[in-house]
Design a protein around this nucleic acid. Structure first.
Length: 887
DNA sequence: TTTTTCACG
DNA sequence: ACGTACGTGAAAAAG
């Protein structure tokens, strides 16, 4: 059976335009309506799988309806220019999708659609879906024709067939015309009968079936309504006529003209590139079933060799020509995942080596592994860090990679969310690649396909890596980030891999014991809560908790979330005086968090074989250049509150007699700020090694050191935090629990004293507006397209980011430098000590007894001299028998 | 999958 | 009048 999808082009374009914020691409062209339309098309192709497809447009001239009624569609606001300019793009887009489109002078899209659905009704054996935002179209519904009406924006449609229309309105599709005849339509300037709205019209139609039926039975009506109907009988008849869709348009095209046979991936990708639909470019599979294979670019010519034991010698011979490698790791966590296989690209030929072959005991396989581990080769990869980690658990070393396209892509745009290989291929105009998800499936549906499919996919991937090398190298140089790449990020990838491989030992028994302790305390608190509340409920559920606090106990609502009442700690603290249960809940929350995340969560991550946790540092996530940590996250282990801090006691050295050594930068962000802003007072404070918060309090309040009390220091500290984050009076007022006015006065006072800082803040925002990006000390870059937004919130956010990123990002640069240098020093000086963790401004090591003193010295020295600033850097070092003791 | 909450720097 | 402090990851509930 054929299936025809018809889109009411103007209607959907309008919907999309008003539903989405006014996006625009880099040349200032608005694209929101085109974007919305695109998502709609993709959804329809996916869900409806049409065999025939048409987009119908209104011809922009007077239609026959205007001859009958001059005011038709009068009073309608003119199409905004921001939308008009998108129609040519829209036409192009539809062509790129391979979808037919037309319009006809003197007719509206409605009439074209009405005619086509009539033809379909008569022809039979065709299913039709009409997509529109216009309820009038419901009159076209039939056994074969379904109307898809957009609901809230354009993200969802509601399907109307005759039974559903009957259920919802109690009307047949034909009666929709009568409905409009009675009630009119302001948007089309159709009068109807004044005073008759939807409710009255429906009642009348249920009784008398049609406009004619109502007019013939006016004697049965009474009151004001009767008067109005009698008076406006002609209006009703005319309105019905206007609302009737004309279904006899002289169409010249044939059924076959509407045939839809899929889009051509490259053309569509080109169109998306032009429109700068980055997310779609990365998400979409342009080689998918909609794209005929014949149109694939030249990549199909590349020779692939599935390497088995017999063919290994051929590969070994080709190794000198190999310049790209891809290691396919299955699973999110490379420490627990497995290696499916590797692909190598030489000149003109790609080799796929399944893991069984790579790990074989033969001399040939051994030779291949030796080559992978050799450092004297040049090799491009995608995600060296991940590959190195996954291979190390298989006893295979990966060395000598000279380029990593993932790391390069991250430096070129660290805010890009999914830096997938197929996304990069698309961005650089390379042949289309399948998304991993489409090859393997995702989540529970993950399945390794046939070997030939894997071979083909991985060979395409490694070819992409090979082709990305040169253009990305150039882009790094253009951005002056080649040193950042080659001297910092690339070496760091291997440093991280070796830190993770070593892992950190966990005292499992101690952790379990703490869990038991917590369980006891939680049980007690839970009872007090049930007792105080007078009922049992799930304390972990914000919804149930909200019901208790704000419905049952009638406590004042402080803050709402988009789904209900907020019950976060800030709210609960304000509610504490009202009811004893609140304090218990706060207490419960603290301990429950420790139990679930830090006791149970951590235990799940301890490896049976090593008794250690091996976190995975991600190097390409944070927009500022920081690292992040997963499986488990070891960068958010509690420290602020004593109960939580105890967790740190279970992180212990992996060998008896060794110690944990920690080293953390003192005020690195404010020191960076002092350097970048060249603020005299701030630089002076650090040169004299003063307590920066006390010093700030002295200068802001204008008092000598002896007069700075704890409260003044606390406020000054909050201001310093605010400065680093990109200050706003609102943010500071929230933090200090003061009014916005007071906060603003504080900030003003601060800037009056630290004038260099004010100058920096002003300049950096200006610079961001000018260049479209900001940079760190080592040229790391972050683009801020929203810095010119007209939306206040978006713009303000971008401005704060412009102030914060150079500070946070430069601090990240510095500690990363220290890590690479430290790794070299450990090797050079033959230390047995091991670097284990990085927590943004802190490094954690385990050291043998006899290395404590030299390591203290070495770590401090390297961290303090990693990068020379105009103010000194300071690192504080300590050791202890576990992470808790080393503070 | 999304939302809420909370842990860290 | 607008309504945010910057950057992350994990757990639990609820859709």
């Amino acid at each position: 059976m054929s299936k025809l999808v018809i889109i009411d082009g103007n209607s959907i374009a309008y919907r999309a335009f008003f539903a989405l914020p006014l996006l625009s691409n880099s040349s200032g062209l608005h694209t929101n309506a085109v974007y919305g339309f695109t998502t709609m098309l993709l959804k329809l192709l996916d869900e409806q799988k049409p065999t025939h497809f048409l987009v119908a447009f209104d011809a922009g001239k007077a239609t026959f309806r205007h001859k009958d009624y001059a005011d038709y569609k009068g009073g309608r606001a003119k199409t905004p220019p921001e939308l008009s300019e998108q129609f040519p793009l829209l036409r192009e887009l539809i062509t790129a999708f391979g979808i037919s489109q037309f319009e006809l002078d003197g007719y509206e899209a409605d009439d074209i659609i009405g005619t086509l659905t009539r033809v379909a009704d008569e022809k039979g054996d065709i299913e039709v879906v009409v997509v529109t935002g216009d309820k009038d179209m419901l009159q076209l519904a039939s056994e074969q024709v379904t109307i898809a009406l957009t609901r809230k924006g354009i993200s969802e449609v509601e399907l109307y067939d005759p039974p559903y229309i009957m259920e919802k309105y109690g009307l047949t599709p034909k009666q929709i015309i009568d409905l409009k005849g009675l009630m009119g339509d302001t948007s089309d300037n159709i009068p109807g009968i004044p005073g008759v709205g939807e409710k009255t019209a429906l009642k009348l139609l249920h009784e008398y079936e049609s406009v004619e039926g109502v007019l013939a039975n006016t004697d049965q009506l009474k009151g004001k309504m009767k008067e109005k109907i009698v008076e406006h009988a002609d209006d009703a008849r005319m309105s019905k006529g206007l609302a009737t869709i004309y279904r006899e348009v002289p169409l010249t095209s044939t059924w076959d003209d509407l045939t839809y046979s899929g889009y051509e991936g490259q053309a569509l990708a080109d169109m998306f590139r032009k429109l700068e639909f980055k997310s779609l470019l990365e998400k979409m599979d342009f080689s998918g079933p909609d794209s005929p294979d014949g149109d694939r670019p030249a990549q199909a010519e590349i020779a692939t060799v599935a390497v088995d034991r017999e063919r290994l010698p051929d590969l070994l011979e080709a190794l000198p020509q190999v310049d790209a490698l891809h290691v396919e790791v299955v699973g999110d966590n490379p420490h627990t995942g497995y290696v499916l296989g590797i692909a190598l690209a030489a000149s003109g030929t790609c080799y796929y080596v399944p893991f069984e072959v790579l790990s074989d005991a033969s001399a040939d396989a051994e030779a291949l592994r030796t080559w992978i581990a050799s450092s004297d080769k040049t090799l491009a990869v995608y995600d060296q860090h991940r590959a190195e980690v996954a291979l190390c658990w298989q006893g295979i070393r990966l060395c000598g990679t000279s380029f990593d396209v993932l790391l390069a892509a991250y430096l070129l745009d660290p805010t890009e969310s999914a830096l997938t290989l197929n996304g990069l291929s698309t961005k650089y105009g390379l042949p289309v690649l399948k998304a991993d998800e489409d090859v393997f499936g995702k989540g529970a549906k993950f399945q390794v396909p046939a070997a030939e499919v894997v071979c083909d996919h991985l060979c395409r991937k490694v070819t992409a890596v090979q082709s990305l090398l040169e253009p990305m190298k150039r882009d790094l140089e253009t951005g002056e980030m080649h040193r950042l790449f080659y001297e910092l990020e690339l070496p760091l990838a291997s440093v991280l891999a070796s830190m993770e491989e070593k892992g950190i030992k966990v005292d499992v028994d101690g952790l379990k014991q703490y869990g038991v302790e917590l369980a006891g305390q939680l049980d007690t608190i839970m009872r007090s809560i049930y007792d105080a509340a007078g009922m049992e409920f799930n304390i972990n559920s914000p919804k149930q908790l909200g019901d208790l606090l704000f419905e049952k106990l009638q406590l004042p609502v402080i803050k709402k979330t988009k789904t209900g009442y907020s019950t976060d700690a800030e709210v609960l603290e304000k509610l504490e005086p009202y009811h004893p249960v609140v304090g218990h809940i706060l207490n419960y929350r603290t301990l429950a968090k420790l139990q679930s995340t830090y006791v149970e969560g951590l235990l799940k991550e301890v490896r049976e074989d090593t008794g250690k946790v091996h976190t995975y540092f991600k190097q390409t996530i944070a927009a500022t250049g920081r690292l992040s940590s997963q499986y488990p996250n070891l960068q958010n282990i509690p420290i602020r509150l004593e109960e939580g801090r105890k967790i740190r006691k279970v992180f212990v050295p992996s060998q008896p007699g060794w110690s944990i050594l920690t080293a953390d930068y003192s005020q690195i962000e404010l020191r960076v700020l002092a350097h970048i802003s060249q603020d005299e007072r701030l630089m002076e404070a650090f040169r004299n090694d003063m307590d920066i918060h006390t010093k700030t309090a002295m200068d802001v309040f204008g008092v000598p050191e002896s007069d700075v009390d704890a409260n003044m220091r606390r406020q000054a500290k909050a201001v310093n935090f605010g400065i680093v984050y990109g200050i706003s009076d609102y943010g500071l007022s929230q933090n200090l629990n003061i009014t916005r006015k007071e906060a603003a006065a504080f900030i003003e006072q601060y800037f009056a004293v630290f004038q260099g800082v004010r100058q920096y803040m002003d300049d950096i925002v200006k610079k961001a507006r000018q260049d479209g990006y900001v940079t760190t000390l080592l040229h790391r870059r972050r683009y801020l397209p929203e810095i010119t937004a007209s939306n206040f919130n978006l713009r303000s956010f971008a401005e704060r980011t412009a102030m914060n990123t150079p500070i946070q990002g430069s601090a990240a640069d510095i500690i990363k430098l220290a890590m690479v240098q430290m790794d070299e020093r450990l090797k050079r000086d033959g230390f047995n000590s091991r670097m284990l963790l990085q927590v943004h401004d802190e490094l954690v090591f385990e050291v043998p007894e006899d290395e404590i003193e030299p390591m203290k010295k070495a770590v401090k020295d390297i961290m303090e001299t990693a990068l020379e600033l105009d103010v000194p850097l300071r690192a504080d070092v300590d050791t202890g028998s576990n992470w808790y003791e080393a503070k």
